[in-house]
């Protein structure tokens, strides 16, 4: 990872203000960088930036790095960080706040793609289907072809059912999602 110097041009004060104004943004400025969030995080080693670093970057308004980091997508929402933070900052909720901003900014990377495929599967079926998820995601990510033998061996062991589980009334579900979209547009 190339480390760019932090210069005035790398800071986006509008982005900073946008995040600080959200409900979770209220306490962001009081972070003392103790690192209990990252120390508690079960997946921080997989992240480009640890939760602690992400909070610092939001404080500085490093919009590009924050929104294109994989941190916000890797978070499993286990809430350990939010429970333990001595300043009452909720990093989990921060991740959830940053995701729609990243999508709205048109950020595309593997994580955004996966998230889109996953939510599409849920929107159409009301349930997660591993088969649909993997096949659809493979379409967007050519590199997934390397995983084919592994997928086949799982199928052979009946660990990857081909049947698609659907909920009973997907129409109603569609309406719920549409209403949700509408109310967000209004905002």
């Amino acid at each position: 990872m190339k480390k760019e110097p932090i210069i005035p041009e790398s800071k986006d004060s509008a982005f900073r203000e946008q995040v600080l104004k959200t409900p979770v943004g209220e306490k962001i400025l009081t972070c003392m960088q103790c690192g209990i969030c990252s120390g508690s995080c079960p997946v921080s080693q997989e992240m480009d930036y640890s939760p602690r670093q992400l909070v610092r970057m939001v404080q500085l308004g490093l919009k590009k790095e924050v929104l294109s980091s994989n941190t916000i997508w890797i978070c499993t929402t286990c809430f350990s960080c939010s429970v333990r933070c001595p300043r009452g900052i909720h990093p989990t909720e921060l991740m959830e706040t940053l995701k729609p901003i990243a999508i709205a900014e048109g950020i595309t990377n593997r994580n955004v793609k996966f998230d889109t495929v996953f939510s599409d599967v849920i929107k159409t079926n009301g349930r997660a289907s591993e088969f649909l998820l993997i096949s659809k995601y493979s379409m967007t990510e050519p590199g997934m072809i390397k995983q084919l033998p592994f997928g086949l061996s799982m199928m052979a062991k009946r660990k990857l059912p081909l049947s698609v589980d659907r909920m009973e009334n997907t129409k109603e579900l569609g309406t719920i999602f549409k209403l949700g979209e509408k109310s967000r547009e209004k905002k």
């Binding site: 690192g35 209990i36 969030c37 120390g39 080693q45 640890s50 670093q53």
Partner: peptide, 27 residues
Amino acid sequence: RGKVAEILPGPDGTLMVQYEDTNLGRK
């Protein structure tokens, strides 16, 4: 430099301390 996140039982009656070394950004 880092606030300890967890103290858990380790092997043979020892204690395992989990933390982030915030100077390095590594757990």
